[in-house]
């Protein structure tokens, strides 16, 4: 009948088991490659948007750099030197073509009417800043993600209890204040009682633990900002599954509450949780300029804001592209986690 298997299927079952692992790896690789290719296409469109947006910035770049006193000839010469006299599409193609070979161009700043060229390649400016930003993001994520998962799981475990309410109220409170406010409150506490450094002006040569020590307050601020979102999604994704018949079945097998959640609910909840975590990690890289400013942290956010102010187009474009790539990569990771944790996708019929 419909579920009796023909003899011809027997070898396929064996083959299926033997080849399963290889096939799975293949499947994941294929997906990653497909998504990466899509990511490149997305980046291409993002580059268009970035470039066009910058065209709409008011003011003349030459004038902005050289100052009001510059003569028309100097400005014209300067524009010619930077290639700003070329039509927009030409400049765009030049830029994209260079980026494709890894060359993000040279910063506008450092060039002066004096004639001495002290300008630096964009990558040279961004790289150390990006390193700092990733450092701060990493130490924050290492605390915030496990903390959020722990709070989310325990809040789901004891849902509607006092604990659940307190956790919800506290995380909501911390997310409701603007981050600079949280930052200043922490600085106040620190100055009064904790004795933590309130300036996170880390430098290149600093030993690792000193960097960590200096970054504690900005990291704590960011943790407070991102935990709520991740924790609430973890809690909601788990609770959403608790009404499933297979959860009832697990309970009727006599499994403890914590085991029901960890073994039966959580494995099916990873996809939405991973998406939210990816979103928040992306924020840690691209959205922390305010916190950087408050703590004088030399991150890439500050660099970009400064570059916008000084009309340093190559730097702005480079930062924007890196931010876009961060989003794309993190979302790709979340998608892969969604696939790896979904047996329907991982083990097709």
């Amino acid at each position: 009948m419909s579920q009796t298997w023909s003899a011809g299927q027997l070898p396929t079952i064996k083959a299926w088991q033997a080849g399963a692992r290889g096939e799975i790896v293949n499947l994941i690789l294929q997906t990653i490659l497909k998504r990466l290719a899509l990511g490149v296409v997305t980046l291409f469109f993002v580059s268009l948007v970035i470039f066009s947006a910058i065209q709409f910035l008011p003011g003349d770049f030459g004038e902005a750099v050289l100052g009001q006193a510059a003569t028309e000839e100097t400005v014209a010469a300067f524009r010619r030197e930077l290639g700003l006299d070329q039509p927009a599409w030409q400049r765009y193609l030049d830029w994209v073509g260079a980026v494709a070979t890894g060359d993000f161009g040279t910063s506008f700043s450092g060039r002066a009417s004096s004639g001495v060229d002290r300008s630096r390649p964009v990558m040279e400016m961004i790289a150390p800043r990006l390193e700092n930003t990733l450092f701060l993001a990493s130490i924050t994520a290492m605390v915030a993600v496990p903390l959020a998962l722990f709070l989310g799981i325990t809040a789901a475990l004891w849902r509607n209890s006092i604990y659940d309410r307190v956790v919800n109220a506290m995380t909501l409170t911390s997310i409701s204040f603007p981050e600079f406010f949280v930052a200043y409150i922490l600085i106040l506490f620190s100055a009064l009682w904790w004795g933590l450094p309130t300036l996170a002006n880390i430098t290149d040569g600093m030993p690792f633990w000193e960097k960590v020590h200096k970054s504690l307050l900005p990291s704590l601020t960011l943790t407070l900002v991102i935990v709520a979102h991740m924790m609430r999604m973890t809690r909601a994704a788990i609770i959403n599954l608790l009404a499933s018949p297979y959860i009832e079945m697990a309970r009727l097998k006599g499994q403890s509450r914590i085991r029901v959640i960890l073994r039966h609910a959580l494995p099916n909840a990873w996809a939405p949780i991973a998406t939210v975590i990816a979103f928040n990690l992306a924020y840690l890289v691209v959205g922390v300029v305010v916190v950087e400013v408050v703590f004088v942290y030399p991150g890439v956010g500050q660099l970009m804001v400064d570059a916008v102010a000084s009309r340093d187009i190559p730097v702005v474009q480079g930062c924007a592209l890196i931010f876009a790539a961060t989003y794309i990569l993190l979302n790709l990771t979340a998608d892969i986690i969604g696939i790896v944790t979904n047996p329907r996708l991982l083990h097709p019929k």
């Binding site: 499933s244 006599g254 403890s256 494995p267």
Partner: peptide, 25 residues
Amino acid sequence: EKRALWGSRVAYVAQSAAASFNPAH
């Protein structure tokens, strides 16, 4: 006390097998 019984001395077979098995295991 009930958990000690469930899945050891009493067991349950549900209507929808598809929904009552955990898709992840």
